[in-house]
């Protein structure tokens, strides 16, 4: 069942983009849209949007880079370890939970490292990979999406995003303990 589902989704992922291109442009032809002219008209914004993001992305990534390089993550892990022990979350996976909202490549590195040390089918390995799949890189998404429309006052987006991250991580711990618990 799981394999079938996986194969199905993988197949969809491969044909989705060609199908979307074909359907959208084909529908445009049917509706007598001047497809080439309209496409170019829309596409010319691509450059501006990408360039508009740069200052927001630089600000965000530099702050995250400084935080990561300083070793503050290790300090935070030590401080938070007693709390996470209470909910049955192995201390080894705490850096993963903390890194996930900050950096995609950083959390990927931690996940790979945890699997190398503890094995992919160990509880820690399964939990780390579930955590990786349970959330997005919140701060990156915030910087890129808000940057593209020059939003500086993000209002409640950060608290909402962080609540989502915490719940995603707690959900991952919960489900892994129920299904693969020690």
């Amino acid at each position: 069942m799981g394999d079938f589902f996986r194969a199905l989704i993988n197949a969809i992922a491969i044909v989705a983009i060609p199908l979307m291109l074909f359907a959208f442009l084909g529908w445009g032809v049917v509706k007598r849209v001047k497809v080439y002219e309209v496409f170019v008209e829309g596409a010319k914004d691509g450059f501006n949007v990408a360039v508009r993001i740069i200052p927001y992305l630089v600000a965000m990534l530099c702050a995250i880079g400084i935080f990561r390089a300083s070793g503050a993550m290790e300090l935070l892990t030590t401080v938070l370890a007693p709390i996470t022990n209470l909910i049955g979350m192995p201390a080894e996976t705490l850096p993963m939970a903390l890194m996930r909202p900050l950096s995609g490549s950083g959390s990927l590195g931690i996940m790979t490292e945890l699997m190398k040390v503890h094995g992919p089918d160990s509880f820690i390995g399964i939990l780390a990979s579930t955590m990786y799949g349970s959330s997005e890189t919140t701060f990156y998404v915030l910087a890129v999406y808000f940057g593209s429309v020059q939003v500086k006052n993000t209002r409640h987006a950060v608290p909402a995003g962080l609540i989502a991250d915490v719940c995603g991580m707690l959900g991952a711990v919960f489900i892994c303990r129920v299904l693969f618990g020690i």
Binding site: G2, R6, D121, A164, G168, G171, A172, I175, C176
Partner: peptide, 23 residues
């Protein structure tokens, strides 16, 4: 990393991400 069942986390990830999204 040599997992015997790499896809085992599909269900748990969907659960975790669903928690995150709803929250």
């Amino acid at each position: 990393a040599g997992s015997s069942n790499p896809g085992i986390i599909i269900g748990t990830s969907i659960f975790g991400a669903a928690c995150a999204t709803v929250a």
